[in-house]
């Protein structure tokens, strides 16, 4: 339902504004307001997606739906991280991303092109859910990476203002970002594997070097590298944060760039 989507977008926008205000002059109250606004947006957003599923349509078949589902996954994981680690300020860094994704979703083409019968299978749901949940984990890892860089800068340059006071410790930021990547990486791996299986059953070949496949593989290698250098060379802290941000920009390119600029089996419009 269009109205639910627009309402969710509005609440995410409000949460973003409060989140940005919070960065400059926050208190416990603003954090709570931001969380409540985001939660209302999330509930409306969830109802919208569930209604679509109930009508028998998996809402990932055009850029509008895919972008919206991507934001939904990010907010879902954000609330999980908030529940687990209580990094309230994370909302200030992640809600703008959610809002921009939702805004893109609202201006991207909405007409539903019928899924070609070849692709109509339960793989569609499994493959895309895995891919987007993985991407959402990378989005949060990058958001926390930005927080790490900000806090690291404060500690290193000894400028300890009010934002420094409200940001959590470097260690927790580094650890949570790492944990999110260790969550996102297997999800991405599974998404690639299920995609290959699906391709085999639909087209008869596992891998066709479609641009989406290529860029997903690049993303996979980047995060494999993030995990590898952390364990072997001790690339933690600042370097890990920079890599997590770099990784997420590749994720964004794979999502937007490949779909909009490069043509392939994953483009919605053919």
């Amino acid at each position: 339902m269009v109205i639910l989507f627009e309402l969710a977008l509005t609440f995410y926008f409000a949460a973003t504004i409060v989140g940005v205000v919070e960065l400059f002059r926050g208190s416990r109250a603003t954090t709570r307001i931001m969380l409540v606004l985001a939660a209302i947006g999330f509930i409306l957003h969830t109802i919208n997606i569930v209604l679509s599923l109930l009508s028998g349509h998996i809402p990932v078949t055009n850029m509008h739906e895919a972008s919206s589902f991507f934001s939904w996954c990010i907010v879902l994981l954000f609330f999980y991280v908030e529940y687990r680690y209580k990094i309230g300020l994370l909302g200030s860094f992640i809600m703008p991303v959610v809002f921009i994704l939702m805004l893109s979703s609202s201006i991207l083409p909405r007409e539903i092109t019928p899924v070609s019968p070849m692709l109509k299978s339960y793989w569609l749901g499994i493959h895309t859910a895995l891919a987007f949940l993985g991407d959402a984990a990378f989005a949060l890892a990058a958001g926390i990476g930005v927080m790490y860089l900000v806090q690291e800068h404060f500690v290193k340059t000894k400028r300890l203002g009010s934002l420094f006071q409200r940001l959590p410790s470097l260690q927790i930021l580094d650890e949570v970002s790492y944990k999110l990547i260790t969550l996102g990486f297997p999800l991405l791996t599974l998404a690639i594997i299920t995609g290959a299986l699906w391709a085999e059953s639909a087209w008869g070949s596992y891998w066709r070097w479609d641009p989406k496949e290529v860029w997903s593989l690049i993303t996979w290698f980047i995060y494999a590298l993030v995990l590898h250098v952390r364990l072997t060379a001790g690339w933690r802290g600042k370097k890990a944060a920079i890599l997590s941000i770099l990784g997420f920009s590749v994720v964004l390119f794979t999502f937007f760039g490949v779909n909009l600029l490069l043509k392939g089996v994953h483009s919605f419009v053919r």
Binding site: Q151, V155, L167, P168, S169, L170, Q171, E175
Partner: peptide
């Protein structure tokens, strides 16, 4: 009552912003 006003407390508060546990 926020923020340390002695050197030794300031050191401890900083420690808590670098390490968690």
């Amino acid at each position: 009552a926020e923020n340390a006003v002695s050197i030794s407390y300031a050191a401890v508060e900083l420690t808590k912003k670098i390490f968690t546990d």
